[in-house]
Simulated assay, not measured.
Amino acid sequence: MFPDDSLQSIIQPSDWWIKNESKKLCRGALVFVFAPHVDQIPYTFEPVGRSVPTEHTSATVMVSPLKIGQPLNKTNLPVAAMTTFEGEVWAAYRAKKRPSLVFSSESIPVHKALTRGKPNHATSPTFLAAPYYGIDQNGKRAGYNPEFVERVRHCEYPQFHWDKLPMSGNKESLLRLDHLQPFGVHHDSYAVSDYMLSADAMDILDDLLRWLIWGGVSAESMILAYRELIESNFDS
């Protein structure tokens, strides 16, 4: 399933993907979520008129860049479904249902006695996952340059990880570790697939994340041995 020059080959004969027998949200699980696309400059939308002049439940909105230095203008148009508080704005993102890898499952719940009378969103549990992006170019997506994909497969960039997902024909995908983000744990927020990473595979991904966040891996990391092997056999 995986080529000899891939990071996955270094844990053989251990499996990379295994069945998620419990079908539960857990570390290493492959799940589906609506992952937002992260733009270099975020967008905001604000109500500029009502769809029906006499109703307060819907509005016509204007989408515009949300720049960090711009003043936040409070709208004078009341819309019941678009209430914001001091210092808040509505943010606009494109999102797509993507396969994603769970790094941290549901967080430890806070005792209700400690949150009584406070808004739920302030302590609502989440899980952390990073999304996969397909590499193929077609009429719907730009894909990735083959030379870049090879460099990712050879583990040159800690923010990217090359993989073949265990469904839909084992198509190649890139995991964006720098898109690691929280998702709600409500059952309507995600869907668990039949697969998860093995313990050995998850150790490798943890090392990649450590490299991305702290700028390096431990001297015992298998990634170092893999990189030495690649550098001795491939031109950079």
Rank of each mutant, 00 (worst) to 15 (best):
P3N: 04
P3H: 14
P3G: 08
D4P: 10
S6L: 00
S6D: 11
I10P: 09
P13N: 04
W16E: 04
C26A: 13
R27C: 02
I41F: 13
I41C: 04
T44H: 06
F45Q: 09
E46C: 09
V48D: 09
G49F: 01
P53I: 14
P53F: 02
E55L: 12
H56W: 11
H56Y: 15
M62V: 02
P65E: 12
L66H: 02
L72D: 14
N73P: 08
K74H: 05
L77G: 10
P78F: 07
A81V: 06
T84H: 13
A95Y: 05
K96H: 14
K97W: 15
L101K: 07
L101N: 07
L101R: 08
S105Y: 05
S105T: 12
E106Q: 15
V110G: 04
H111Q: 14
A113R: 11
L114R: 12
N120G: 15
T126N: 14
F127Q: 02
P131M: 01
Y133T: 10
I135N: 11
D136Q: 00
N138C: 05
N138G: 02
R141F: 11
G143F: 04
P146W: 03
P146Q: 06
F148W: 06
R153G: 00
P158W: 08
F160V: 00
F160Y: 00
H161A: 00
K164D: 00
K171Q: 08
L175W: 04
L175T: 12
L175D: 10
H179F: 10
G184E: 15
V185A: 00
H187R: 12
H187E: 14
Y190S: 12
A191V: 11
S193F: 07
S193H: 06
D194V: 02
L197H: 04
A201G: 02
M202D: 10
V217A: 06
S221C: 03
R227Y: 04
E228A: 08
